[in-house]
């Protein structure tokens, strides 16, 4: 029998990953700390207020039409070119209005999300 083979140490890559550097604000939210809670509440309130504003614009325009035609039946006789007013408003003009509201909403809501991302990433390092 020859000499035993020299022992070899078998190693793998280190198990523990180096800590990913994450913004302090994100850690606060993940830890569900009081500060993280404040961040979330302000985001939720801002988005909800924006949504309700768009819905209010919808209700105050489209939503008032039946009432207007109920209170002023003479609107039914108004003509714009070859079209009765009711057909023009509901059959044609409503659609660009809905698209415009949707477009404005998306612009604002993406601004809000960008602000939120900036806010949680620039938060100064909290003492551990």
């Amino acid at each position: 029998m020859s000499d035993p083979l020299p022992r070899v140490r078998v190693t793998g890559p280190p198990r523990r990953r180096a800590d990913v550097v994450r913004p302090a604000g994100a850690r606060e939210i993940d830890a569900e700390s009081a500060l993280g809670e404040v961040f979330m509440r302000s985001l939720l309130r801002e988005q909800l207020v924006l949504a309700l504003r768009v819905l209010a614009a919808l209700v105050l325009t489209l939503g008032l039409l039946p009432l207007a035609f109920h209170l002023f039946p003479s609107l039914g006789d108004v003509r714009v070119g070859p079209l009765p007013l009711g057909w023009l408003l509901l059959g044609v003009l409503t659609y660009p209005w809905l698209v415009l509201l949707g477009w404005l909403y998306i612009r604002r809501v993406e601004d809000n999300e960008r602000d939120f991302a900036d806010l949680v990433s620039v938060l100064p390092e909290a003492p551990e």
Partner: peptide, 11 residues
């Protein structure tokens, strides 16, 4: 948190 935070924020 999952529903409302933008995907850009690492959570």
């Amino acid at each position: 948190v999952r529903l409302h935070t933008p995907e850009a924020v690492d959570l």
